[in-house]
Simulated scan of single mutants.
Amino acid sequence: MTATETLSRLPLHDLHENAGARFGGFAGWSMPITYPLGVMKEHLHVREKAGLFDISHMKLFAVSGADALRLIGRACPFDPAEMETSQSRLTFFLNEEAGILDDLIVTRLDENRFMIVANAGNAAGDEAHLKALAKGLDVTIEPLDRVFLALQGPEAEAALNRAGIATDGLFFMHGREPKDGWFLSRSGYTGEDGFEIALPEQDARPLAEALVADPAVEWIGLAARDSLRLEAGLCLHGQDISADTTPVAAALLWAIPKPVRETGAFVGAEALRAAIAAGAAQKRVGLKPEGRQPVRGGVALVDEAGNPAGTVTSGGFGPSTGHPVAMGYVDKGLASAGTRLFAEIRGNRVPVAIHPLPFTPHRYFRG
């Protein structure tokens, strides 16, 4: 972003100001980073009760039409015809080299209607990518202007029900359109049970106000969102995965069904098959630094002999774990749990151990 460009404001910006939010720039948006509670208490509140996040910087695309299945199957490495109505799944837009252009959640809402949730920083590129693939197809791609809220934590369902939003029959990675212009899914980015709700601003304001008036719910900022997702071992596009990262190296092949890997005709299919056959030179792993000093993204890793061993992509302190947590890429031969490496920080070497992901167990509601 240049000095002359300004940050976009969330539709509910004034609510965050009134709540005492401290703002910062992220993906072109002025985002609440922390609230008066502070990042440590915000993080723990989500793990213990329920936290409300404003994620309206993210983008939703409604895809519909007779060729919707063909478009989704071409754009993403899975077979949308295999999805049940209301089912959601994590997937990707890949480039021809099998690099991850974006990681997405796709929900099948009807026979020929899907909802795609994309990352904020990739929204314009995702829309152009979809529309290019849709040429000649009977399909409509509709970018939606919605307030997008996430309510996460063990008390999320009860709080949402108290606010008048029914969640019955909705399990993890399922979604539906409960009202005209609304989209509700049981999903999130924290490792906890929770929901994401997209809705028009005139509906979002009273809902947000009702939720934060609930004693179980607090506003939660971007800083705690990052520490929560890092403890949960969830990737952030632009840090842990990018257009230069394949699902093989990122340890995300589980999101691509094996038959589709082998015979699918999605964008990047041949490159992905070649990457699988060759194997990844580096693998994404969890990293546990010794002591209390966090190891941040961009820090180089070396082995016992001082040879280059990899790079940290995300790192910070884990309030739930009580110790620093990080993710990064290390040489394949060093990716086993317990392997000891060193992070080079300002001339010092901080010992780190390869650690299984996630650092905290997922607590999704699967029924």
Results as ranks from 00 to 15, higher is better:
92 F>M: 12
93 F>C: 09
93 F>I: 07
94 L>E: 04
94 L>C: 01
94 L>I: 04
95 N>V: 01
95 N>C: 03
96 E>Y: 05
97 E>I: 03
98 A>I: 04
99 G>D: 10
99 G>C: 10
100 I>K: 04
100 I>M: 15
101 L>I: 15
101 L>R: 14
101 L>N: 13
102 D>F: 05
102 D>A: 06
103 D>T: 06
103 D>V: 06
103 D>A: 01
103 D>K: 03
104 L>Q: 01
105 I>V: 15
105 I>E: 13
106 V>D: 07
107 T>W: 00
107 T>F: 04
108 R>V: 02
108 R>P: 03
109 L>H: 04
109 L>I: 12
111 E>L: 05
112 N>F: 05
114 F>Q: 07
114 F>C: 08
117 V>F: 09
118 A>L: 04
119 N>P: 00
121 G>H: 07
121 G>V: 08
121 G>T: 07
122 N>E: 13
123 A>F: 04
123 A>R: 12
124 A>P: 11
127 E>N: 08
128 A>S: 14
128 A>K: 15
130 L>H: 05
132 A>H: 04
133 L>F: 09
135 K>A: 14
135 K>F: 12
135 K>W: 08
136 G>R: 02
136 G>I: 12
137 L>G: 13
140 T>P: 04
140 T>C: 13
140 T>I: 12
141 I>D: 12
143 P>S: 07
145 D>Q: 14
145 D>A: 14
145 D>M: 10
146 R>V: 14
146 R>S: 13
146 R>D: 08
147 V>C: 14
148 F>I: 15
150 A>V: 05
151 L>P: 11
154 P>K: 09
156 A>N: 09
157 E>N: 08
158 A>W: 05
161 N>H: 14
161 N>R: 15
162 R>G: 09
164 G>M: 10
164 G>L: 11
165 I>H: 00
168 D>Y: 02
170 L>E: 01
172 F>H: 15
174 H>N: 13
174 H>C: 11
175 G>I: 03
175 G>W: 02
176 R>G: 00
177 E>W: 00
177 E>C: 12
177 E>I: 06
179 K>H: 13
179 K>L: 14
179 K>G: 02
183 F>M: 06
184 L>F: 07
185 S>Y: 00
185 S>L: 07
186 R>L: 06
186 R>W: 05
187 S>F: 01
188 G>V: 06
189 Y>C: 07
189 Y>L: 11
191 G>S: 11
192 E>I: 07
192 E>D: 14
195 F>R: 05
196 E>H: 10
196 E>C: 11
199 L>F: 02
200 P>R: 11
200 P>G: 09
201 E>S: 10
203 D>N: 13
203 D>Y: 00
204 A>S: 04
205 R>Y: 01
206 P>A: 09
206 P>N: 09
207 L>R: 13
209 E>G: 03
209 E>A: 10
211 L>Q: 12
213 A>F: 02
215 P>N: 03
215 P>F: 02
215 P>R: 06
